[in-house]
Amino acid sequence: MSVIQLENVSRAFTVTSRTGLRRTKREVRAVDNLSFTVGRGEVVGYIGPNGAGKSTTIKMLTGILVPSGGSIRVAGVDPSRNRMKLAKRIGVVFGQRTTLWWDLPLKDSFAVLQKMYGVSRARHAENLATFVELLDLGDLLDVPVRQLSLGQRMRGDIAAALLHDPEIVYLDEPTIGLDIISKARLREFLAQVNKDRQTTIILTTHDLDDIEALCSRVMVIDHGHKVYDGTLTGLRSSQSAPRTLVVDLAASLPPITIDGATVTKVDGPRQYLTFPTTTSAAPLVAQIAATYPLQDLTIAEPTIESVIARIYANPAPVTD
């Protein structure tokens, strides 16, 4: 069952630039003819370079921004027409700015949100207890938000976004600026929420570890177009980024010669060979084992960073 549906959605902005006294207006398409669906309980990583159209998409999905073309359904309604009705069914975390009240203690923000979203007292208490425990918020409840560290504030923000049991949560850069431990804890928490509550999560991030840890599906957007939609593994192979074969020989040897692979680095008895994704590793391994004193070997997948970098460098629109 799909909870988010976009059909040929576009959002154009008019940019006015001034040169001397002359004003020129020009239309920029932040999102261009974008279509996708997201099923209930999916965790989708939504990535792309700055200015690719990520925030514009999220703003349209929440109903803040009205699309200039196409149709959007979120939880069965048109977000821009039913913004406030939809608000109770979604949660949003903006990584760069807080949705909490800056000068008030964390618990006051939570109390206001309970009333604002019309959450029953019992349910609120239950959720709050869960989040306080999982996100370790106990000592922070009486602290004014402005005094919280970035990581503490983010935990507060995520709890705030989830207190009203939203069906869909949009997280915009939730781990930006956090230390490694906080990041790991946050990812663990989100995975838990997704598992326990079947919450659909849309995650925009620059940190690809977030995606590896959480997302079953990745969408890549560039210049307002969707350039990839599929699994992380698929993303890797789609770009035919070379894989690496790390070979440990019995002795230090000059670079070995193998058909279909080339040595890129020699480090004592260890040699690194790259080969295209399209080639199967098995015949290569057989070849090496037959010719050289092979002791051990591993195959390294291309890093996701290198894959994404290749997509941005030569975008190839996918066909669904």
Binding site: M84, A87, Q96, R97, Y117
Partner: peptide, 23 residues
Amino acid sequence: RTGELDVWLIRPVPAFIQAVADN
């Protein structure tokens, strides 16, 4: 400018109410 209006717009209370009650 600070983006706070966006935060008001994702809540189930009219932005106007939040703007006049703000601070």
